[in-house]
């Protein structure tokens, strides 16, 4: 292999090494920040920032769901459950997992409030489809539901335990434009 090719590939290898260790680097230091400028461009272009935080530092104890209530001008209210991870046929797993991810890590959080209008409209579209677009909607309310596994010292939950009811909180109301 020609030397120039070897040098070029070696730079690519180093670029990937830097990408691998980025989360553990002091990114606020000016030198590190400058060194990572080209690496960050590569990482953001392909969206390949890596942290590998699976179940760490501690596994979450909170299970989250999301639902919406659509209110119509005739006073009727229809409830919509967002897809969630389930033990159904395997084909639903990826679908459910994607919704679990965005609900539990983004939509549930107040700092991701910019996702709420889209989320409300998604529920509205699905409910309108159910009603054959015959009713006139007034507003959509989004509810977060959660269940927290109590600390082991308080009580031991068997693996077969199923949650019968979750805590709920209305966190967003979307007025439908008329």
């Amino acid at each position: 292999m020609p030397l120039y090719k070897k040098i070029f590939i070696s730079f690519f290898i180093l670029l990937n090494f830097m990408a691998m260790i980025r989360t553990h680097m002091p990114m606020s230091a000016p030198f590190v920040k400058a060194a990572y400028n080209p690496v960050d461009k590569y990482l953001s272009f392909f969206s390949i920032y890596q942290d590998w935080m699976m179940f760490s530092p501690n596994p979450s104890r909170v299970d989250s769901r999301l639902s919406a209530v659509v209110e119509f001008s005739n006073g009727k209210k229809i409830n919509y459950e967002f897809p969630h991870a389930s033990k159904d046929f395997i084909i639903n797993h990826i679908h459910g997992e994607k919704f679990r991810k965005i609900i539990s890590e983004s939509i549930r959080r107040d700092d991701h409030h910019y996702l709420w209008p889209d989320t409300a409209l998604f529920a509205l579209r699905n409910v309108m489809k159910q009603t054959n677009y015959e009713l006139s909607p007034l507003k959509v309310e989004l509810y977060r539901h959660w269940d927290e596994t109590p600390p082991l010292e308080q009580s031991f939950r068997p693996h077969s335990y199923t949650v019968s009811s979750m805590q709920s909180y209305k966190f967003y109301t979307h007025e439908v434009a008329r």
């Binding site: 179940f55 530092p57 596994p59 299970d63 539990s104």
Partner: peptide
């Protein structure tokens, strides 16, 4: 992932798997 897990107390006291396996989802 091992490094990150060492930062959490549940991995060190051995209860992490208990909490991870109780989440319905």
């Amino acid at each position: 992932t091992v490094w990150q897990k060492f930062k959490g107390e549940t991995w060190l006291d051995g209860t992490a798997l208990y909490y991870a396996t109780r989440i319905e989802s």
